[in-house]
C-alpha cells in the first residue's frame, strides 16, 4: 500500500467532483418529473469516475458530492426534504457507496465493454435511490404513515418505480455516451487522425 494515487487519477477525481458540484448549482442536475418529485443526475460523475479510474476515485468523488449536497441543503435549502439532508448519514454515506458498487458491477462484466458501462450506471443509480431513501427511513425519524397517508415501504416502492427507473435510464444514456466517446470504444467513434501524428512523433 505504499503506492499513492497517480497524477491522472487525482486530476480526474478533482475535476469530476467539480462537475458534480456544478450540476448541483446549475439547473441540469435536477429535472422536474411527472411524479412530482424531481429526478436527479448529479450522481453520474461518481459512476463515470468509478468506471474510468477505479473504486478509490469513485468513492472520493462520491464523498465530495455528498458533502457538497449536505452543505447545499444547509446553506441554501430548496426542497421539502432538504432539512433532512443536513444529516451526513443520509447525504454523504450512500453517495460514497455508489462508486464502489458501480465499479464492482463494471469490473464483473468488463468483458463486454458497453453492456458493462450500462449495467454500472444502472447499479450505481439504484444504489443511490435505495440507500438515500433507505437511510431517510432509518435515520430521519419521520412518521411516513401519518404524514403522507402511506407507509414507508409502499412509498419506497413507488419512489423507486417513479423516480429510480427514469434516473437509471438517464444515467445509463449519459454514461454510455460519455465513456464511449472518451475511451473510444470500438465501433462507437473513429480514431482521430491527429493521434496518429502524435504517435509517430513519440517514436
Amino acid at each position: 500500500m505504499k503506492e499513492t494515487l497517480s497524477i491522472k487519477k487525482i486530476t480526474v477525481a478533482g475535476v469530476l467532483s467539480a462537475v458534480a458540484v456544478v450540476l448541483g448549482i446549475t439547473p441540469f442536475g435536477i429535472i422536474p418529473w411527472f411524479s412530482g418529485a424531481s429526478i436527479t443526475i448529479m450522481h453520474v460523475p461518481v459512476i463515470i469516475a468509478a468506471v474510468l479510474e477505479g473504486p478509490v476515485v469513485g468513492m472520493v468523488v462520491g464523498l465530495i458530492f455528498g458533502v457538497s449536497s449536505m452543505i447545499k441543503a444547509a446553506v441554501s435549502p430548496g426542497g421539502v426534504l432538504d432539512p433532512y439532508f443536513v444529516n451526513p448519514l443520509i447525504s454523504v454515506l450512500p453517495r460514497i457507496i455508489i462508486g464502489l458498487i458501480a465499479w464492482l458491477v463494471y469490473r464483473g462484466l468488463k468483458r463486454w465493454e458497453l453492456p458493462a458501462v450500462i449495467a454500472a450506471a444502472l447499479a450505481g443509480t439504484f444504489t443511490n435511490t435505495v440507500l438515500v431513501i433507505g437511510s431517510l427511513g432509518l435515520f430521519a425519524n419521520i412518521n411516513w404513515e401519518e404524514m403522507l397517508g402511506i407507509g414507508f415501504w409502499p412509498l419506497f416502492g413507488s419512489v423507486f418505480v417513479a423516480n429510480g427507473i427514469p434516473e437509471a435510464i438517464g444515467a445509463a444514456i449519459i454514461c454510455t455516451a460519455v465513456i464511449a466517446s472518451w475511451k473510444k470504444i470500438e465501433g462507437s467513434t473513429k480514431k482521430s487522425s491527429l493521434e496518429d501524428i502524435d504517435g509517430e512523433d513519440q517514436e
Binding site: 486530476t11 480526474v12 475535476v15 462537475v19 449519459i174 455516451a177 460519455v178 466517446s181
Partner: peptide, 20 residues
C-alpha cells in the same frame, strides 16, 4: 439536456488529462 451534458463531461475529462 444531452447536447450540454455530454460535451461538459468530455471537456472536463480533457481538462483533467491536460492538467495531469
Amino acid at each position: 439536456y444531452m447536447p450540454i451534458l455530454v460535451p461538459l463531461f468530455t471537456a472536463s475529462l480533457q481538462r483533467a488529462e491536460q492538467l495531469a
